[in-house]
């Protein structure tokens, strides 16, 4: 019984670490200043994007997921809210941004991503 309890507790700690404490590295964007995000199977791929500060960035988004939640992408900090047509490229141009971390997500926050600006 003790072992089971310890295992359970360990599982809880694992959940906390994996979902809350772990901070993934951003994907570095090439000097082309453009990146493609795939919307598929409940996640943005990649979900963590790193871009250079003070430069306009083009993000191309391709939605392959037909669930309704995925149909929009929101960058709340830049007042961007774009509809994503199914199985079509949609390009969003982000204005030059100051360094920091910004989030982007679908209207229901099922899909979540981070934009790291350095």
């Amino acid at each position: 019984m003790v072992i089971i309890n310890i295992a359970g507790l360990g599982l809880i700690l694992l959940v906390i670490w994996w979902f809350w404490l772990y901070k993934p590295e951003g994907v570095v964007v090439s000097s082309k200043d453009s990146i493609t995000i795939l919307v598929k199977d409940g996640v943005y791929q990649p979900a963590n994007i790193k871009v250079a500060a003070g430069k306009s960035v083009e993000i191309t988004i391709y939605r392959q997921d037909d669930s309704g939640c995925a149909a929009n992408i929101i960058f709340p900090d830049f007042d961007i809210n774009e509809e994503l047509p199914l199985r079509q490229n949609k390009t969003i141009t982000l204005p030059p941004i100051v360094s920091g971390e910004y989030s982007f997500h679908c209207p229901m926050m099922m899909y979540k991503g981070r934009l790291i600006v350095e």
Partner: peptide, 19 residues
């Protein structure tokens, strides 16, 4: 299938949702 794939994909991305 979509629940399990979605769950797996978000899991490896350190996120969790309804799936």
């Amino acid at each position: 299938k979509h629940f399990y794939i979605g769950a797996y994909k978000s899991f490896i991305n350190h996120s969790a949702n309804m799936d």
